[in-house]
Computed example of a mutant assay.
Amino acid sequence: MDPYEGAVGLARQIAQAAEYCGADRIEIVDVGGDVLADGCEPTLRSPLGDALVVAACRRTGLPAAVHIAGPGLDCEVPEAVLLPRLDDPEFTLTTAHTHCVSDVFDWHPSEASALLVAAARGIQGVCGIRDAPGPVVLGPASAHVYRLPLTRVLDINRLAQALDATTDLAQAEEASRRVCGFSEVDRERARAGRQRAAHGRTERRPGEQVDPAFLYRRFTDWERHTAATGIQYATTRRFAEELGLPAAALLALRRQLQHTAPARSEPPLWRLHSDGQPARRQT
């Protein structure tokens, strides 16, 4: 989906896709539930993409519904805030539902989706993710999926309402600043600039070898500090970014971890070593 023509252009793309596929309805899936944000939540970080999709789907005129999977797993709107806005879950994900996506996390370290898969596999505990005000707690509701009519989501999502007639990304960003007080695209631009600068300083020369033992020592130092804060699991993306690992180094570290500590590999998460109570797996 291309957001550069705002909700109007996005609606055109979705309508064309529906026509091509012979679809007579739209089912939107949001992992975490920030699509149900009203824009005032202090922990909200990335509402624009979801709100654009909701606004665009309304413009298509096709019947549409929204599925909320794993309320609170994106660490944007807390589970305790979301659950009163939801009815009973439509169904609960299980390990069997996750087999078809297991290999995806080898090349795409999505965090909210990884947490949803972990919850479906029965993992419960405190998980650290990147760039968040606090950890995510995987609990009994984390594998639930809820279904709402699009009109109900629009009643809550003030940003989606404001995006209705936008025809370019600049207008969409301005609507986000007006409703939510920020545009997440500004933050991502700044992050990309920092990462380019960091990779420029650490980029390896062609043929230069990655030392797995050195990477493992760095990881264990980071792990000791992180586990001391009460975090029991970590996403690949969190330790990759906090350790500043380029792709080759991350691959080498993951192989080293799988070799030296296979019992702590809980794909798509990593269970951190701690002297305290171990994280538990729901049975």
Rank of each mutant, 00 (worst) to 15 (best):
A247R: 15
F91A: 12
R189H: 12
V29C: 11
V210N: 08
T229R: 11
G33W: 00
M1G: 15
R264S: 08
E41G: 13
R196S: 08
T94A: 11
N157E: 08
A263Y: 00
D131M: 09
I129P: 05
A249M: 07
D155P: 00
L272N: 08
L82E: 13
D103K: 11
A17V: 07
S102L: 09
I68D: 06
C75T: 04
R255K: 11
L138G: 07
L215E: 07
R158F: 02
V8F: 00
D164T: 14
L245E: 05
T229N: 06
R194L: 12
S265R: 14
V77K: 07
L272V: 07
T167C: 12
T166N: 03
C57S: 11
L62T: 07
I68N: 06
P267Y: 02
A65P: 00
A279R: 03
H67S: 13
L83P: 09
G122D: 02
L159H: 03
R178I: 01
T151R: 15
V31L: 03
Y233D: 03
T60E: 02
R189L: 15
R280P: 00
H199C: 10
P268M: 04
E223I: 01
E223Q: 13
D131A: 15
V153W: 00
E90R: 14
D38G: 04
A11L: 01
R178K: 12
V29D: 00
E266V: 15
V136A: 09
A55Q: 04
E90P: 01
E76V: 03
R201A: 15
R204E: 08
A143S: 11
R196P: 01
G139P: 04
V81D: 15
R238N: 07
E242H: 04
A261Y: 00
Q161S: 04
P135W: 08
R147A: 11
D275F: 07
C127Y: 01
T151H: 12
M1S: 14
L62P: 08
T236A: 13
S113T: 13
R152S: 07
A197I: 05
D106R: 14
L86W: 13
I123E: 10
I68A: 06
R224L: 15
D87Q: 14
S176H: 01
Q232E: 13
G193H: 04
L10V: 03
D87K: 15
G276E: 14
L138V: 09
Q16Y: 06
Q16H: 11
